[in-house]
Write a protein that binds this DNA or RNA. Structure first.
Lengths: 198, 198
DNA sequence: TCAGTTCTTGACTGGTTCGTCCATAACACT
DNA sequence: AGTGTTATGGACGAACCAGTCAAGAACTGA
């Protein structure tokens, strides 16, 4: 009954993500996004409300997709749990090293810029982090069932440690650490995890 | 021979740091800083050049003071090296947890916002991180000499790991992790460091 | 006391940016 | 085809902001 949208909302969100990711929230102009997507500003505002709401959409999407991706990497049977954990940790190091533009992770960047003054962003980041920790914890528990990690260790605490290492790798990557340093951190972190005595 | 400055440069830098730290670079207005310091904009520009230069000054100062502070915490004799390391790691966790405003560390926040597009900031962050790693490495080597950490471990790699954990604690704190989680991470990280076999 | 120099103040400029508005376009249903 | 509804695009308004400038103030050394 009404004129249909000519643009794909998904695509606009992806483009907006790109802009916010590379420039940050404050430094990205709505007009940049309009030009990059080919939309007029009217359409942009009509469809998403405003800059803040658009960012919230983008940020929410991004957090969800990160958790999804990690979930795909870590879920599986007990036998491969340690291998999955190892692959994940190394993948984060490799991805961070490959990110020559040093944009890091939008979750970290957005939280750093806005969490203090934007409760919505703060809350979303918190739930994403909690989800990531839970995924790690489940995988570590699987490692323990399979005898790859000491059974008497607290999987929640090890998961928190691994998560801190992963976020730390991101942070160091943004500060310009070399690929070698990052992969060393990944390797060392996996090496110091408590193995079962035999 | 000329009219003397009425303001203390140090104090202005501290106030500017406060503003940049809490609002980020892009979202902080020079007029905010002028008002907060009581200076007119002309004085501000006359003394510091411009927004970017002022931020560079502030950022450089901050990086230096962080490295200094850590240096004071970590330098000392071999006998207390592990205790100093432990105290430092726990201090970072406690400070992060106490930072209820979640502003995190200006080094991380500034790098996150600007490193991608500002080579000066990127370089300064890099040298600060390298200095921190060196301090940790020296302390860990001291631990090894004192028999608190396995002598066959690579102190540089352990230092990189510890640094990643510390930066990760900061990042998780900003994302809203609880004090308990953060201190658990600190405790667990220290616990998994390789001890000498005896 | 006076001259020379630097500092201060705040109004002003020019450019930028968020968000709005409106005339027009595109479609669905009758 | 006609009508109602929603999308489009870009001009526009209002606020904001970095940086400048000029007139006057404060101080020192002569």
């Amino acid at each position: 009954m009404a004129r249909p949208r000519r643009f794909d909302e998904r695509q606009v969100l992806d483009t907006a993500r790109e802009r916010f990711w590379s420039g940050g929230y404050a430094a990205t102009r709505m007009e940049d996004i309009a030009e990059a997507t080919g939309l007029g500003k009217g359409s942009l505002y009509g469809a998403f409300g405003g800059k803040q709401e658009l960012f919230h959409r983008v940020f929410d999407d991004y957090c969800g997709s990160v958790v999804d991706a990690v979930s795909r990497q870590l879920r599986g049977n007990d036998a491969d749990a340690f291998e999955r954990l190892s692959a994940h940790v190394h993948a984060v190091a490799a991805a961070t090293a490959a990110d020559t533009a040093h944009r890091g992770c939008l979750l970290a960047k957005g939280a750093a810029e806005l969490a203090e003054h934007d409760e919505t962003v703060a809350k979303r980041a918190r739930t994403a982090i909690e989800a990531l920790q839970k995924l790690l914890e489940d995988d570590i528990a699987a490692c323990q069932r399979n005898g790859d990690i000491a059974a008497d260790a607290d999987p929640g605490k090890l998961a928190a440690l691994v998560l801190a290492v992963l976020r730390g790798i991101e942070a160091l990557g943004k500060a310009g650490a070399s690929e070698e340093t990052l992969t060393d951190i990944a390797r060392t972190a996996l090496a110091v995890l408590p193995r079962p005595a035999h």
